[in-house]
Amino acid sequence: MNITTDNIEEWCFRYLEKDLDSTEQKFFESELTSNKALQKEYALWKKTKITDLVIDFPTQLNTPLLRYNMQLLWLCIELSIVVGLSLLSVCFPSTTPIVKDVLPTKTYITIDTIKKDIQQEYVTYSKHEVVKEANVSTSETPLNAPIIQPYIDSTNSVTAFPKSEEPILPTTNPTSIDSIKTPKDSTVKIATPKKIKPTNRKRRTGSSLIPINNDL
């Protein structure tokens, strides 16, 4: 058993790691008191031992989660809220009336109905013009009276009509769609929807990324 320059490191390491048996330990400790070179060497080795490491985990993660600590209590609270709200909705039901938007699906324009302002408003609402100077004096219903469906914006999925149910015009006289003669010379003119002429725009050429000013 001897401590030399060749094995001094090993001795220090083993002593530091408490790998020495009792006799070796006593020998090393006795040498340590007398040998200054060993003292110096061991002092350096001792510094390699990490003693304190003050690195704290971020505090917000250390706090215990309340939801998990009192799980049963939280469940009771949640349940009571749900039950309370459902009881309230049962005991105090809503009194606000539900207004249904009722619109007739078909309108028969007859001579009587044209006379009335209310009906006129309705026709206007349905975006079909009724000629004001319509000279209607009879209450007879023409056989070939046009059936006009109210024009409703087709973009609205709720109120839109299927495409097949477009305004039905009299088929008996297909050439005179714009003017219908009643038995007593009363004329109802139905305005045809204006056709939007496509603008003469130059066809865009070139890369879509490069803006083209057509006016230039």
């Binding site: 490191e9 530091l16 790691e17 350096l44 080795w45 510094k47 390699t48």
Partner: peptide, 14 residues
């Protein structure tokens, strides 16, 4: 590894 690590650390300290 521990021996080498400590030895290296010791030399750095030194």
């Amino acid at each position: 590894y521990l021996f080498r690590a400590r030895k290296k650390l010791k030399s750095i300290i030194e």
